[in-house]
Structures are given as C-alpha cells and as structure tokens.
Amino acid sequence: MLRRYFPSLGVILAIVAILLCLPHFYSNQSFLFNMMLYLALAEGLNIIYGFTGYLPFGYVGFFGAGAYGAAIAITLLHISPFFGVIIGGIAAVLIGIILIPLLRLSGAYFAIANLAASQALYFVVANPSLEKITQGPYGIDLSSVYNADASYYTMLGVLVFAMLLVAYMRNSNFGLSLLAIKEDQVTASLAGVNVVKARSIAWMLSAFVAGLSGAAFGWYTAVFYPSTVFSLDVSVFTIVFVLFGGIGTVAGPLVGTLILYSMYNFIGISTPQYFQLFYGLLIIVLVLFLPDGVASILQKGKVYVP
C-alpha cells in the first residue's frame, strides 16, 4: 500500500539532502532560500492547477497575505516568528475561503478574477488608512527578529510539507478524484465525488502553502513593502516554472524550477530583458509544442515520473 509512495518520497529525500548539505559548500544562502521558496510555490500551485485545472494568476495574493499575516502577528501580537509563519499560512487560508466563490468561474475567467482579487488585496493592505495595522504603503520592518538560519530551515520545512502534500495527492484516492473532476465534472459527481468539497480543499491547501512560503520569506527578508510581496512576478515566475516542468507530478514542478530559476539567477540577473524575452518565447513554444511540460516527454516514453 505504502509502496506506491516510494518514488515520490525518494525525490523528496534527495531534494532535502541537497538543501541540507549545500549551505556548507555554497555561501550564497539567499539564492538557496529563493530557490526553496519557488520550489515550494511551484508545488503549491501544482496542487490547484495540476490537480483541478484552475490557473490562479493571483497566486501571489496568498503569498502576500502570508507575509503580512505573519508580520502583523509578530509586530502587533508579539508572537514568536516560527508561530508567526504558521499564522501567515492560516491568514492565506482565510483569504482562500473568502475567494471560494471564484471557483464557480471557469478557465480564463477564474484566472483573471483571481488576479483581480490579488490586486484588490494588495491595494487594501497598502492603503494608508490601514497604517495602524499593516503600516500601509510604508513597509514592514521585522529586523528585530531577523534570523537567517532559523528562517532558512523554516522555509525548508515548508518546502518538505508542500512536496509531501503533492506526493499524497499524486498517490491517493483524493488526488484521483480531483483528476476525475478535472477530466469530466459531471461524470465525477455521478460517480459519487463531492465536487465542490474536493475542489475547495485543494484550493485551501494550495493557499496554505503559498501563505507559509510568504510568511517565511517575510521573516527572512526582514524589511519589505506591499509591492514586494504582492508583486505579480511571483505569480508569473511560479506559473512559468510549473508549466515548463509539467503539472500533476511531484518531480515536474521541481525540475522546472531548478532549471529555470538557476538560469534566471545566472543569466537573468545581469541582463533581465534577455531573460524576459527568453521566458516569453519559452511560453509560446511550450504552449504550441509541449503543452504538458518537460515531464511529458518522459511520460510519452512510458517512463514513470514520480
């Protein structure tokens, strides 16, 4: 029974081993942190996009909600940063619950409505009349609790959690029923799947991962502004990474992020426009020729992708 989890767990263990060892050889911790961040976000997005087909263009809304949820808990309620991160995750889930009605919309409508929701949330958080709670547009300062190592390992924990979630969905009946809904909603509900409930659970899990990631990011960065944690780039990068890797598997989003984010770091940072041009073209090519990502090449060759 548990045996079918082995390939997924193998991938997860390999990633964890690398991320535990690497800081001892490679001094740019910040790069590793951001890599973990995008790995976790890619898996989080995979939960909703890969298993239900809903493309959350406003995924960054959960990320920002997590960062702000944690920051408010830490600065106003004086909670320790570690529990602050969990509160950040919960804050994102609360936003997710508010947005559940959006799941009534399909395809591109959902994507745009979700994008609008994340922008609306951004403008609310950044509004100067909420300065007492969110600091408005003037930014959060967590430098008094700054702890690079603790937040690094917290982020690693969030990543492991996200990967385990996807491994579970990849190999469990819950994941299967979601895929059935994605394939044909009517047939699935006739077969006894509670469509609304299953979808909503996936949605909230996905939000939870993004919220935890945002909270850990806020802690690690220590000083941030609403524009930092609600930047559409976060959604865009995550979506491109996931599309490139391939959805619905544990390994696909990981591979996509590892390749593209490393490329971004080594090419993109010195010449960002080239990178933007490159991933723009990459998206076009993927959609036209490889809509299911890199993982689908292997799957076509009958190779099992965990």
Partner: peptide, 28 residues
C-alpha cells in the same frame, strides 16, 4: 491553438508569453 484540447486556457497562457516578449523588446 484551436485544434488543441483546451484552446481557451492555452491561448490565455500563450498570449501571456507574447506580452512578455513585447515588453522585453520595447525595453531593448
């Protein structure tokens, strides 16, 4: 695109790619 299995969603993503290309080229 119209021949693919989900034209609506795929075109959405494709035009997003086009938008990124336009922006990069104009900055150049």
């Amino acid at each position: 695109l119209l021949r693919s299995k989900d034209p609506e969603m795929l075109s959405f993503i494709l035009f997003f790619g086009v938008s990124q290309v336009i922006e990069a080229v104009i900055i150049f």
